[in-house]
Design a protein around this nucleic acid. Sequence first.
DNA 1: AAGTACAACAACCGCCTTATG
DNA 2: ACATAAGGCGGTTGTTGTACT
Length: 359
Amino acid sequence: MPQLLTKLQEMMGRSPSSDENGLKKGPWTPEEDQKLVDYIQKHGHGSWRALPKLAGLNRCGKSCRLRWTNYLRPDIKRGKFSEEEEQIIINLHAVLGNKWSAIATNLPGRTDNEIKNFWNTHLKKKLLQMGIDPVTHRPRTDLNILSNLPQLLAAANFANLTNPWDNVLRLQSDATQLAKIQVLNNIIQVLSASPSNIEAINHLVSSSIPEHQLYEYLQMNSKLEGLVNGSVGFPTQSLTQMQVNLPNFEIPQLAQPSASQPINGLKNCNGNNSDCHQLGTSYFIPPPPSNALPNLVSPSPECSIVSQIENKINPNDISNPSSTSTTFEPLGDMMDDEASDSYWKDFIEQASSQPWPIS
DNA sequence: AAGTACAACAACCGCCTTATG
DNA sequence: ACATAAGGCGGTTGTTGTACT
């Protein structure tokens, strides 16, 4: 019966976008906007319920309020979100969840509705592509991301990184790239917790990652570890934390081995070389480019991810699934190594039930 | 050029909280 | 203390624009 009434109303010329009280719904016209703006500028909004009648609008008060707060308010900043705003949203969402109004209070000129829409249409997808769960802000555990490993490497575009200062500048502007590296590091770190997993890495690497890309990744990794001065590598360093630290960091103590210096491998790393990166074959870090900064030394041997693999991770921990940390933890100290590790152990548990290589 | 699929975003809906009498 | 109105909030839907076939 209500449908019949609506049909009749449509036939009689009434817009279908009206409610049962005859109040208009749907998109606002410029004329309506003008009426609303004019009225509020003269009288303030007062009671929203009373406003439409006083302003000469055939809308409900709620609709007027939403139109004003989400679109017409003079202090609203429109246009694309900046990278800084993007990062703030991600950080706050990691802490607050879908509390859009709370997030909006930290972004002057942005409405909760706008932030919510931006999250749902852009940021959620972006995080997923980076291998981050947009709900938990932790790396995804599903094996689908591994099937994209070569693409992740390619996208990270390691080949263009030559000068460490260039790296710093790029890192500041490319959170996505950092995250991709982080995902790879996490995978490798936890897989490396046991000799049998190292075999799995070798299998994975040899079967799905072009050698030159792997080399570039390891090179990049070495430099990044140096940048994260004093930290113990990506798996313990949140992306957010890096983004905050990088602009303020002092001269990076980068590891720059001499030409032809061999890099010890996973299988035989002695733990004394911060650049000991090898996955199944021998790699050498080339001499620094002529424009590279001099006097770059390793902060400490323990900084290397591979050193961590050998020295930090206790394979017995794999059975401990407890974790409360997130990858995008804005409060860096809330994230500890063990939590990060245990998370990736979950990943390994899943991985162990899959035949290698993953395709 | 037309049809379809998808993305982006404005607006709505319904529930919850707060303010007021 | 309670009832009711008003406002706030988050989830969802509908419309529009664009890319693709």
